[in-house]
Design a protein around this nucleic acid. Sequence first.
DNA 1: AAGACGTGGCG
DNA 2: TCGCCAAGTCT
Length: 348
Amino acid sequence: MQVSQLIGSWYDSHKRSLPWRENPEPYRIWLSEIILQQTRVNQGMPYYTRFTERFPTLRELADASLDAVLLAWEGLGYYNRAHNLHRAAQTIRDEHQGIFPSDYSSIRALPGIGDYTAAAIASLAFNLPYAAVDGNVYRVLSRILGIPDPVDTSSGKKTFQNAANSLLDRQLPGRHNQAMIELGALVCLPKNPQCSSCPVQHCCWAFKEGITRELPTKNKKSRIRNRYFHYLAIWQDHNLYIKQRNAKDIWPMLYELPLIETPHPAELETLMLSREWQTLFHGTKVTLLNTSRSYLHKLSHQHIHARFYKIKVEPDYTLEEYRAVPADEFNRYAFPKLILSYFNTMKQ
DNA sequence: AAGACGTGGCG
DNA sequence: TCGCCAAGTCT
């Protein structure tokens, strides 16, 4: 029996029942694939439910505001996925008559859809013969076939794509791709793979050699940048001033508080002498109510060291470019987790 | 083409 | 604890 047949029939009897597998239609398959990019099933599940409830159809997603989409995405991270999801929905509405495109190159051309996601949608939704290669598949292929190439280089990626292409079950590409991924997610785990439950243990190179732990290989080690955020929680009566971030940098178009960033740690006294402080307050009377603890918010490539200063300003003052919002309306805006965790401590 | 982009779970 | 990583894409 072929490797792909063994994995395919293993999949038939071991696959999880997941909401997007219940009633497979292109919109829901696409939505699930975007949510699951770099995201665990357990983390993405509630977001999939939320999206299908708030935006039951592709049309409703396309017609929604970006703010509404970001609010539904709040807390899931990699927020450009939400931007691209929204843009792709509008592209399908405007250029594909609202019908999800059914050929690979049209799917691949949509924003937020790369090689993996295009192959996944093409095979799962339209049964087209494209091999989807994600992190799970890298693991499965590198171990079964003993491929030592690093998975985070362009040449390594080509090697794995070629291996996946030649292994693809062209009769049932959708099942094949899901089976490869499911095997990586349930059995061929990064640490402690469950080789005793593996349908292809007998023909696995890494198992035979006893080096499953060494595969797959990677080259890069990421460097961490430190950033120092000083958030000003400026209260005026019962309103807090908030502002939307710009589209570049982290948390694109999410909301936050007035921010002063410094390249190094800084005390409030220093901030009060800064140009940003002058721009915000230009000499108006401010009262410091309290200073939060220091927060360390770890992102994949940077550590955000944050502190929140609760400040009161007088009623006659207005902060241009910011929006004064009462606490019971915070949930109308999408905030990064860092801001949300500060809000949570305020409720006490 | 190397680096940026979130968050949470795990050993 | 803390580094690693989880169904990648974009620039």
